[in-house]
Design a protein around this nucleic acid. Structure first.
Lengths: 136, 136
DNA sequence: TTACTTGCAAAAACTTTGCAGGCGC
DNA sequence: GCGCCTGCAAAGTTTTTGCAAGTAA
């Protein structure tokens, strides 16, 4: 992921590496505060501000994305798939990515009904992950 | 909507009416701060706290819901349909509700692929509303 | 060297909590 | 009158901004 940052014209720095690694270490999503805590294992002086700014940068490059839970939307997760969505576990909060959503028929129906021209969408699923299912 | 609150066992108060009317006046969604501003036209001493608490109440009754935009998720909108989703205009920020989403095939596929047992979902569309399309 | 980055500190914005007084029923 | 409800004030969180020092290239 750092490579993508560099080839986009941004510097390769320890701080960025720390944030990127922390993010990739938690594909299930993590808040800026947690990312900072994790990132400090790699680059100790890592500051909160840098985490925010790096996330912003990653988002603009399409490499990270917010995860929206119904309680809030402060968690971030790395984006690995071209057009992925997340499914979030109600039990432990982990998130998994999945590919493909095939919403075309729906989009056409909504356009016809509301008059909106729909260009993007955003889908998130909630449920229980395999571990939490077993645990019950 | 106030009726629903009352029949659920909560009091009919001016403050609640103010929040409910402000909310219904902005089906496109509004932040707590904006709802308070609008609500003050109805009940002047309306406080921020009451707006938050009323929204919480409405949410628990299934009458209001957060709208999650990619920039944040501080806006709230009334829920009028049984199982509605929102389509949000990138131009003016308005939201419209639509019904039905037929995600069953997708849910099955995701369950099979990730092992998650999916129980809820959450979908939001983005695009341009009829007015904004014309305006361009 | 030169411009981009960083991290601290402080400010700002947003949300929640405590509590005395007010209001619905 | 009783108990829920409200609004102010204050505290707690989260996020953004300003700026001098640091670092990649």
């Amino acid at each position: 992921m750092l490579d993508s940052i560099c080839s986009a014209g941004f510097s390769h720095t320890r701080s960025r590496r720390a944030v990127v690694e922390a993010l990739c270490a938690t594909p299930s999503g993590a808040t800026p505060a947690k990312l900072r805590a994790r990132g400090r294992a790699i680059h100790t002086p890592l500051g909160t501000v840098t985490v925010y700014r790096t996330l912003e940068l990653l988002e603009s490059l399409g490499l990270a994305r917010r995860i929206h839970g119904e309680d809030g939307c402060t968690a971030w997760a790395p984006v690995s798939l071209a057009h992925g969505h997340h499914v979030i576990c109600r039990g432990c909060g982990r998130a998994a990515e999945f590919e493909g959503c095939d919403l075309e028929p729906l989009l056409r129906r909504v356009s016809a009904r509301t008059g909106f021209r729909v260009s993007e969408h955003w889908l998130e699923l909630f449920g229980l992950c395999p571990k939490c299912i077993q645990g019950k």
